[in-house]
Design a protein around this nucleic acid. Structure first.
Lengths: 343, 343
DNA sequence: CTGAAAGCGCTTACAG
DNA sequence: CTGAAAGCGCTTACAG
């Protein structure tokens, strides 16, 4: 029963139409819509039937205007976007969050804030209440946006621990150090002793923790640390390639390398190939993420699986809880070694 | 001058606060907000100053409630999502659209509708007016969603020509046939004669047109058609690998292969490598897209560049025009051959 | 050019 | 359990 006005354009049915159709007041319809408390079964049923007949869908703008909630969530990506978009992990995360939210019938707004200007604009938009909460993905975790949003009282959960904000901001992260430990232990168990590493950016917890895990295991195995075996990257493929070239140059006898992301590992493989090194015979290569990139290369990458599905689900769960009034919380998820052909 | 109520929570300033601060009526503030027509320069200035002082940001819910517009756009992805998320092209498109829209200060809602159920739910949501228009990305272009949205009068622009809807639905697409022609001509010019092809899905215009271009050029070059040299894929990496294995099996003398997407070409390269064929010495490989996948492999892929930045910009432009009342329009953009190491 | 007023579609105390 | 009424923050004819 879609309404049609003079112009021929459809006018969607309102709560008023439903009330008339059901023979009750608009208040009663609204009560049914909002959980059915204090409504008689008879009224309940009449309203539901009327909703079905009219094809009524709530007008969220009207609802939001009065409740002060927007019933939508922002997915905010700050800093270098190219890097994230290049990274298959990003996709998995974005998809996971969208789906988890769809389960609650909550639309997700995608927000990109690559420049200072955009960041200002979007922070304003968010603090004006246009979303109820924010899922934050940012590379440099010293990011001021997190702090600004927190100050403004916007519910927020970050992917990965935001540096400097302690536990004031919720976050969900994989156990980076433990994952790194597993990989390096695996490399050691293969008999490798000259194990290099290409790290992630060292101003991020992921970068720092994975390096720490690497160092710990070497020390435990009684293998002497050698700084020439450590190069630092920024998670991009190109930086992986550059890092491997550096390592090869400084330590030609390297027999294994732990790379802090699968994407960088792609670059490492390319560099190794150019240098005529066989993988895994001459150099074993271990990645991190278990992203689609891991199986897109030859040989397929042994790697540390980050539980992205769980990460996105937990991010959504924690955010919704916080919107509901809970205090911030941190969630650390375990990783898993996935053995393939590169080790 | 953010308001604070008894509870200590911030109450954002409203148009009322701005009016009081500027010493004008709320109507005048609204007029300034909406283009400044019929407002004296003095009032204009007073209002702008008041907005600055109060940090006022319009409440979009209130505005949408009365205008009937949502001032937001949906980016709708139907059908197999994994495929899109796996495909780097998707990223470029999504990012391009988000940015083009941000330029107009219009938020983008990401909508995934992989199942029949979700499609129903989202169609409802959209037709209820929660977005002003839809950017549609769908693989099987016989997709009923496009037809449903069109019938409901929702402004819509598809990425790629939707089959069966003629020019009733706006779309933006690269010139698939011409791009394919350029690649095959290139292969022929290299002296290759046993040129295979791995096609895209043949129920999509891209799949059909690229195959048509391939056949045309072979005919023009006087090379006899050989069905054993054609395998069909679905744009996924895996289908590229399977396709190449098939071709190798049926036509061992194949000396070149045109692959309808870079991602499938990754698979082709892997299959060729396994079979011990050198690229490009034994088999030249040409891709399509010029996605990040093209340079992520060794050897780097010769390919046909799809102008994704322009495609996303045009999609947004056409959609906004249509929301403004324009009729649907189709935009076809030229492609370009990018020569790298695989040919 | 400007103000006063109506109204967009909802939710939520407030009485009953 | 239910209806009548107020009000969320804005825009837009309508008079002036």
């Amino acid at each position: 029963m879609t309404m049609t006005n003079a112009g021929g354009r459809r006018r969607p049915p309102t709560i008023h139409d439903v009330a008339r159709e059901a023979g009750v007041s608009r208040g009663t319809v609204s009560r049914v819509l909002n959980g059915g408390h204090y409504v008689s079964p008879a009224a309940q049923e009449a309203v539901n039937a009327a909703i079905r007949r009219t094809g009524y869908v709530v007008n969220r703008h009207a609802r939001s205007l009065i409740t002060g909630r927007s019933d939508s969530i922002g997915f905010l990506l700050t800093e270098p976007q190219e890097r994230f978009f290049e990274d298959p992990n990003f996709n998995v995360l974005l998809r996971g969050c969208t789906q988890a939210l769809a389960g609650h019938d909550i639309p997700l707004l995608l927000m990109l804030a690559g420049t200072e200007d955009e960041r200002r604009r979007i922070t304003r938009y968010i603090t004006a209440g246009h979303v109820d909460g924010v899922l934050l993905v940012s590379s440099h975790s010293g990011d001021p946006v997190a702090e600004q949003l927190r100050e403004a009282g916007v519910p927020l959960v970050a992917c990965g621990k935001p540096i400097g904000l302690g536990s004031k901001v919720s976050y969900v992260a994989a156990d980076d150090r433990d994952g790194a430990r597993d990989m390096v232990k695996h490399l050691v168990s293969l008999g490798r002793r000259r194990i290099g590493m290409v790290t992630g950016p060292l101003d991020t917890p992921g970068g720092v923790e994975r390096l720490a895990g690497y160092r710990e295991v070497l020390a435990e195995a009684g293998i002497e640390a050698d700084d020439r075996l450590v190069a630092s990257g920024d998670y991009s493929r190109a930086s992986g390639e550059a890092g491997a070239e550096q390592l090869l140059d400084r330590a030609a006898d390297m027999d294994a390398v732990f790379v802090a992301s699968d994407l960088m590992a792609q670059g490492v493989l390319a560099a190794l190939h150019k240098a005529g090194r066989r993988v895994p015979e001459d150099v074993a290569v271990g990645g991190f993420d278990d992203s689609p990139a891991a199986t897109a290369v030859t040989p397929a990458l042994t790697t540390i699986r980050q539980p992205w599905d769980r990460i996105s689900n937990e991010m959504v769960r924690v955010l919704l809880a916080q919107i509901g009034g809970d205090d911030p919380a941190a969630v650390i998820l375990p990783t898993e070694l996935v053995r393939r052909d590169s080790t």
